[in-house]
Design a protein around this nucleic acid. Structure first.
Lengths: 201, 201
DNA sequence: GTTTTGCCATACTTTCCCGTATGGATGCGC
DNA sequence: GCGCATCCATACGGGAAAGTATGGCAAAAC
């Protein structure tokens, strides 16, 4: 498939495994098909890894560290609380592949190896979101509720985009939809909530 | 496993297949393991079904019809628009197994057989929800947006319950959380949205 | 220039499951 | 009580992928 590199590295195998998870979930990670896709044979694989289990663990490790760092980097720069949350939302809906990968791994979360990583990543995201909501002036308790609310909505939207894209508002209306989400999911403590304006339109 | 019935029916196999999907997704539906769980052999299976594909299709058919009818039955009785939507929410979060099953099938929605059914079920639910929102006095356009919003939140909450239960508010706070969802996701056209009261608390 | 080392190919064996072929048992029609 | 349909067991062949064992081959080491 790709002959740019003379030899493969363990990370190449891990990335290929993550690609395979997007399509086939955990069962999609099969050594021989991966080898065919990489243009080599199993001999290469068993040089870099002890077995299939080691590949899966390495891939998950790679995924988790990448996911927890990206969340921070994209939003930590924005200082204004409302803008920061909006940035998180935009970034979250940005990469389609990452979204599919998350859903694929979450679906395999019955596997004990996967469960730990999915738990860790979602926990990291929720904590960061709750922190953002606290910066808005909410109590810790309310911030947690709103963070969970927003994250759930994000996860659900992700799933709809994958399983029933036609259900989401088409083209221009989709932007209205996103604005509705953002306005509703970022309360203005002390001010009048924005939903009223939306319904007046 | 179960010796209550002298012989098995095709529906027994279909139900067992749905149970297997909850745990192992589509790949979890394997003829020989199912036979072992039912206390019979493959000979029984291939009497009732032509092959594994037929079993999968029959199971999906059974699931889809059940899902689309349950949604109607539980909520059609409630006439008041707000109460009706609340009923839908409560019912949706009711059966844990049905939620897991939906997520398992959605995860397998890359399979063309599954895709059609998942699409159909989610579409049916969204249409009904949009209808409920229209009864609130929203325009068709706004009703669709709010229905999508609410359904996404429902899906995401379902996923959190499965993959990271500890992330959801514990015990008593969870009820507050559900109230927040309901109050926020059911706008009051013309009146002041309820989020203000929530934040004042 | 020979020897090692890194990376991979080839050729097995084993396991698990699908699908088929065929025979056996039980119960009903008549 | 004979025959037939229903429902299931047993035995077999085949494919796909995990893991092992071993040989090959180029580049670096010396």
């Amino acid at each position: 498939m790709v002959q740019t590199k003379p030899t493969l590295s363990a990370d190449d195998w891990a990335d290929a495994a993550l690609d395979a998870m997007v399509d086939g979930g955990l069962d999609g990670v099969a050594v021989e098909p991966l080898a065919r896709k990489l243009g080599v044979t199993k001999g290469s694989f068993y040089w870099h890894f002890a077995n299939r289990d080691a590949l899966i663990r390495a891939s998950l490790e790679r995924w988790a560290s990448r996911e927890t760092e990206q969340i921070i980097e994209r939003a930590k720069g924005v200082r204004q609380p409302r803008k920061r949350i909006q940035t998180v939302f935009k970034a979250a809906n940005g990469s389609e592949r990452e979204g599919h990968l998350y859903l694929a791994l979450a679906a395999a979360s019955r596997d004990p190896r996967v469960a730990d990583f999915v738990h860790k990543v979602s926990q990291r995201r929720l904590d960061f979101l709750a922190e953002c909501y606290r910066a808005l002036g909410l109590t810790a308790r309310d911030a947690r509720k709103w963070a969970t609310f927003a994250y759930s909505t994000f996860l659900g939207t992700l799933q709809l985009r994958r399983d029933n894209p036609s259900a989401l508002p088409p083209g221009p209306v989709f932007n209205e939809y996103l604005r509705l989400l953002i306005e509703t999911l970022i309360p203005r403590p002390g001010e009048q909530p924005p939903a009223a304006a939306e319904q007046a339109a």
